[in-house]
Design a binder for these strands. Structure first.
Length: 433
DNA sequence: AAGAGCTACAACCGCGAGCCA
DNA sequence: CTGGCTCGCGGTTGTAGCTCT
């Protein structure tokens, strides 16, 4: 480890004359002018060269958080807000990672926005802003909690199908991680990606819950997740899962009635889950039973053989749009729709060649009938991308906004792949890598 | 009108990773 | 391998401006 920042001169405490506190317009002007002309170079040396009585650290912060020309000012849009909530649910307080997916926004700005707005908002919605989960799973008055439990359970039970749908992982063959990997390692990689799908879908569905305007659109979610998987099979699968613990889930989730019925999602007509009529009449009296049943189910034997997986055309190649495989363009999730990129990399200096992307309809989160957002990996930019798109910033800065992450967790074991915490922590590393 | 309390956000601080001699 | 150095990150603090009483 290096010396403390202060002792290294990065912000030398001995230089008591170094100014602190708010920046004046004159100081801003000096800093901008200098960086425009010469680039920032060594931040430590910059203040002296620019004629500023500030420490280098202060200059860097002022530039990156405020003066940089590509910074977007103003209120966060609904879309940005959703993106922050989604990404925070995935990566936690990794503000720089979140900022990398919100062009023009700084980590500091997002952090402040989270602490002052979103945290409060989530709390009001009964969501723990730390865990991004319902605060009390035992709150029988909160139908959202039930849906949340149901989503978690069904997604977990579908893990084997997701894994099977991962195809040949052809794009991963080019991944360094896969190059020298033994078969077990390759299986692990596929498992990680299927876990990633589960986590992403879970968060999408939770977002729908947060909208409070409808029940979760599970049919669309399943179509998105397993497009080759027939609705009726999903329906059967859900039936099967709940029959294992001898409960009639229609008593608790009447919206499931008719699910997958010939393509007509009559069980998923929009309705307000907070409305009394949306709640099963015997819900309160049986809540503890349901919770226990779900708990028992989650702690019982690993999922048995999945229902028949209906193959789609082009199966096995991983290149079909019908498959949730990995095509040769490093597309994380394949789709025939959704080209919108919420997160683009417009900073040519950044060294992330593949960032988390959320595609699809920008307003789809709260609209059950819309396409669900897509999670894709953007193709790595060609080496001359930055040269072809010179910017002021390029001329003045060679900074790489590299994001480093500590190890997020131990590699999941194949026999323990439904360990939520382990999976959650591990796949983040893959996506944010 | 004035002071207390609150909110939003800019700026600071300390830690630790990465690079390099 | 070690230690100095730079820099980025996340948590925290300070403060200006706003709202409430």
């Amino acid at each position: 480890m290096g010396r403390s920042a202060s002792a290294s001169g990065w912000c030398d405490e001995k230089s008591s004359s170094v100014k602190k506190g708010p920046w004046t317009p004159e100081e801003d002007e000096k800093l901008v002018e200098y960086i425009k002309r010469y680039g920032h170079g060594s931040w430590r040396a910059l203040p002296k060269l620019a004629g500023l009585n500030r420490c280098g650290k202060s200059c860097r912060l002022r530039w990156t958080n405020y003066l940089r020309p590509d910074i977007k000012r103003g209120n966060f849009s609904q879309e940005e807000e959703q993106t922050i909530i989604n990404l925070h649910a995935l990566v936690g307080n990794k503000w720089s990672a979140i900022a990398n997916n919100l062009p023009g926004r700084t980590d500091n700005e997002i952090k402040n926005f989270w602490n002052t707005h979103l945290k409060k908002k989530l709390l009001q919605m009964g969501i723990d802003p730390v865990t991004d989960r319902p605060i009390t799973a035992n709150n029988s008055d909160n139908i959202h909690n039930l849906y949340y439990l149901m989503i978690n359970h069904i997604l977990s039970s579908l893990a084997p199908q997701l894994l099977a749908s991962s195809g040949t992982c052809s794009s991963l063959a080019n991944n360094n991680l896969m190059m020298n990997m033994n078969p077990r390692g390759a299986d692990l990689m596929r498992l990680h990606y299927s876990d990633a799908k589960i986590q992403v879908l879970r968060n999408i569905l939770v977002q729908q819950l947060l909208s409070s305007t409808s029940t979760p659109n599970l049919e669309a979610a399943f179509n998105y997740l397993l497009p080759s998987y027939s609705s009726s099979s999903v329906h059967d699968h859900i039936d099967h899962e709940y029959s294992r613990v001898n409960i009639n889930h229609y008593n608790y989730f009447p919206h499931l009635q008719g699910f997958g019925n010939g393509g007509a999602p009559i069980g998923f007509v929009p309705q307000n889950p907070t409305h009394a009529s949306a709640q099963p009449s015997n819900l309160s009296s049986n809540i503890s039973g349901l919770l226990k049943a779900l708990h028992d189910l989650d702690h019982s034997q690993p999922p048995r053989a999945p229902p028949v997986l209906v193959p789609s055309s082009g199966s096995g190649t991983g290149t079909s749009d019908k498959l949730l495989g990995y095509d040769d363009h490093a597309t994380f999730f394949s789709s025939t729709t959704g080209s919108n990129k919420i997160c683009t990399n417009n900073n040519n200096n950044r060294d992330h060649s593949h960032q988390l992307q959320l595609g699809g309809s920008s307003s789809s989160y709260a609209t059950p009938t819309d396409q669900l957002p897509l999670l894709v990996r953007s193709p790595a930019p060609s080496p001359d991308t930055s040269a072809a798109n010179p910017t002021v910033e390029n001329n003045i800065s060679n900074t790489t906004y590299s994001t480093t992450f500590e190890a997020w967790g131990n590699p999941p074991d194949l026999m323990d792949h439904d360990d939520d915490a382990t999976n959650h922590s591990y796949w983040k590393h893959i996506i944010m890598e």
